[in-house]
Write a protein that binds this DNA or RNA. Structure first.
Lengths: 252, 252
DNA sequence: CAGTGGTCTAGACCACACC
DNA sequence: GTGTGGTCTAGACCACTGT
């Protein structure tokens, strides 16, 4: 029986060889759409990669690269001796390094920010260690109250290297911090965050409009640029009754 | 001035071309160690990739693949026209799909498990939706209390497809759930989890040895195998005073 | 056994950054 | 300009899977 029995080709589409978009990426994107919109249902087995490359007029390495891209996204699984199979598109995307502002905007909510304070402070031991500066040196500090749909949802304190002490308060009230940093030419590279919980203090209850002793989600995050230098350290608390973290993972 | 001014080669080592370990992986691993142990300090610029390939007697694609591996791990940054630079090795690893049992073991603590109940139950609407079965059908259910160093730290309820209803209770008390599933041939592929917080009920306070009204971390997780089928749905609560989630991220 | 993906090679041309 | 990484090609051999 022929090898292609029960297997499918890449759905027809036109490669644009004059486009600046790499060929492997055009193929990967086309397949990703086809998988997500159900044109290629879960469980489908593809033709083998040499055949696929021929069908699209590509070399095998380029075709492989497109498929590897989909493996990394968790959309397909490849097994030597078996073939390439579509899995359930359950995983939306890797956890991304976004700010709460962008999270809320993306989910269709309407974030507003109240800038409680903004200035410089001396780094204590914790802040100094996180930002990689010496204890007592000056750092920028901002306190913000973030609301979604007119209700306060998070209290955020952030520390940044002193060179950011001249940020525009109006802009900070208007955009997410990461958005502001990007306009300053900061390229974020990585971050480490710790998520925990504790009960609210009286002041926090008042600020967030939560009952006394309510549970709060806490998050501390240090973000690094692509030189490995810390650009931000934040300690945030969230009203747990109205906020939680969603994380999609792939096995390594 | 020569191109190699201020740039470094791959530290000397011997490739094993007869090993089943791929060459690109041998190179990547060697470089990873050298970066992590400080032999190649942060900020270092490598020779260009053609030169590196020559030095090791490899082709350029193979050398590129090794470097790409390190980019994915967040250890180096590459810029067209500039070169390849080592960043601070702050990011330990991507968030991994591990069980609490493995987390505790890895961190040198001594996990123990009390199996509170184990049997079958009818799936309610929530469980049915998560596991992709029909409401009212039978599923396996287990309740466990996990302790670290003799102190209870988490209360865990898990639901699995009915085919796992014959797991050995003794083994469940002895190992992590994911470990047990792997011995049954389950290949985990992905998961989605939601992390939140709430205050403890009276029963939870008692079980976890926390004060009344203490804050708890909550986590719901659905895990999928490589066919896209749900293999586990769990709702867990953790004593927030002694447990938090650590997450390292790279920008996409 | 035949078929699959995994690895590796030796070239080529291009886009971008810096001088 | 020159040098860098990014992309692409056309082959080759190997390891694993299922019959």
């Amino acid at each position: 029986m022929p090898a292609s029995s029960g297997t499918v080709p890449v759905p027809p589409f036109t490669l644009d060889r004059s486009s600046p978009v790499p060929l492997y990426f055009q193929v990967a994107q086309h397949l990703e759409h086809a998988i997500i919109d159900g044109t290629i249902p879960p469980g489908t087995l593809f033709h083998n990669e040499i055949q696929l490359a021929d069908e699209l007029g590509l070399s095998r390495p380029t075709m492989r690269r497109a498929m590897q891209h989909l493996v990394d996204k968790g959309l397909i699984v490849r097994r030597r001796g078996i073939g390439t199979r579509v899995v359930q598109p359950k995983v939306r995307r890797q956890l991304e390094l976004t700010s709460l502002y962008e999270d809320l905007s993306a989910s269709g909510q309407k974030p507003t920010t109240e800038l409680l304070s903004f200035g410089t402070a001396e780094a204590d031991e914790d802040v100094a260690a996180r930002l990689g500066v010496t204890v007592g040196s000056l750092v920028a500090r901002l306190d913000r109250l973030r609301s979604a749909n007119e209700r306060p949802i998070a209290r955020m304190t952030n520390y940044l290297p002193e060179r950011f002490a001249d940020l525009d308060p109006d802009v900070l009230a208007d955009q997410g911090l990461y958005q502001v940093l990007r306009t300053r030419g900061v390229v974020l590279h990585s971050a480490t965050q710790t998520i925990g919980a504790r009960t609210a203090t009286a002041a926090e209850s008042r600020q967030l409009g939560e009952p006394r002793g309510a549970a709060l989600l806490t998050m501390q995050r240090t973000a690094y640029d692509d030189h490995g230098a810390a650009v931000e350290y934040g300690t945030h608390v969230y009203a747990a009754s109205r906020y939680s973290f969603e994380i999609d993972l792939l096995t390594p």
